[in-house]
Design a protein around this nucleic acid. Structure first.
Lengths: 223, 223
DNA sequence: AAGTAGACATACTACTGAGTATGTTGTCAA
DNA sequence: TTGACAACATACTCAGTAGTATGTCTACTT
């Protein structure tokens, strides 16, 4: 187990009571493989080698389980970029660091992030009970706050003349699409090292930054 | 109705018998809004102002309807890049054209493309009847062939020294994520013109190409 | 030793939604 | 004008699934 996986595990433990962690992990896997709607609680239970009883003992409903997964996923992201965000450095360097850290988080907590994506994107139509709507809004808000952290640094880097883009909102969407993309196509190779994952994240980050007109990144790639 | 919308409409008509077109349109909308699994045939019927009967008169099953939507979506894409593909021009210029045309197709046939995405990505777990599996494989194959058209032009442009990237497979994923991204966030504004859509597609294309290390695009943006 | 509570498993209920069987209406050919 | 067929609508069936009610076992307390 790498240091990073251990940190992830610690974060999981800090967020939910021990014993729920395995449920969250398997649920995230199922949600990624089949999608929220197509995943039955029995699917998750089967993956756990248990029955529904175990899941409903800890989670009130399927939506409740899903939100728990997605919220933990967002916590991973905030934790991942925290250090980069606090660095004393030019905005462009902080942005590169945050982008890389975010992308690594996508790779290393892929299943959780896939649930976050579904929650925000598909808007989970169907779970329209009042409290669940509340919870969904909170998730989207959390995502917006997270996005705003990048927005601020991007604006600063743009003022410094280090990046250039047209519509800022579209630019941010494009950047996140590039950084998030491993959610959809990453598949761990047998015998893969942390260094391999870092290389993948680096290519995504380079692409994302070059697209934003970061000439330093672009020049480095062209060399 | 714009010339483009008319062309789209003609393509729709050429691919399926008249009368099915409206069903496909509404189905695509529903699949985009709620996702395939969460969309009921009754939902589609309601959107049509009809009942199930109409849908099952033309389509054998829900999966059949879905595949029809996705296949039409892919036809849109092939048609969109056709002219650019045949141009007599340096690879880098053809690539820019294809990327732009593809992105425009994402915007103008968004609902269809969202179904294509779901079909390829979620792999439609659940529709595991033999013929549907066949059809899904055919869809994925179609998508792979489409992707290969870009791959060839990208390799040529790279040989010409006009673009630079690390892992080619990842680079293509990143490019398509940028070009496809309007599927997820584009929302037509009231009073929007074709020019507005072209501007959006242009920004996505610029981002995608700059990420590939197209210095001409990058320099133009930095100017 | 008995009681209690947490951590599940088992066995149900109720409902949603895909698919079908059949009815109805308009149109068009002969 | 009549039958035949396309284009639907209506009214069902049936399987899968979320959620519940209840049972069981173990560990720990007193």
């Amino acid at each position: 187990m790498t240091a990073n996986a251990s940190a992830q595990s610690n974060l999981e433990r800090s967020l939910v009571e021990e014993g729920q962690v395995e449920i969250l992990r398997m649920a995230a896997q199922c949600f990624m493989d089949r999608g929220f709607a197509s995943t039955s609680i029995d699917d998750v239970a089967r993956r756990l080698g248990s029955t529904k009883g175990r899941i409903y003992h800890f989670f009130a409903s399927k939506a409740d389980l899903f939100f728990a997964v997605a919220e933990v996923g967002m916590e991973f992201n905030y934790a991942a970029i925290d250090a980069s965000l606090k660095r004393e450095a030019p905005a462009i360097e902080r942005l590169r660091d945050m982008a890389f850290a975010h992308c690594m988080s996508m790779i290393e907590t892929q299943a959780y992030q896939h649930s976050v994506w579904q929650g925000v994107e598909i808007h989970l139509r169907g779970s329209t009970t009042p409290e669940q709507r509340e919870r969904l809004n909170a998730l989207i808000e959390s995502r917006d706050r997270y996005s705003a952290l990048f927005k601020a640094v991007m604006e600063e880097a743009a003022r410094d003349g280090n990046i250039h883009y047209g519509d800022p909102s579209i630019a941010r969407q494009l950047m996140f699409m590039a950084l998030n993309s491993p959610i959809f196509w990453y598949k761990p190779r047998p015998g893969e090292t942390a260094q391999d994952r870092r290389r993948i994240a680096q290519q995504c980050t380079d692409y994302a930054l070059a697209g934003l007109g970061d000439s330093a990144t672009a020049n480095r790639l062209n060399a």
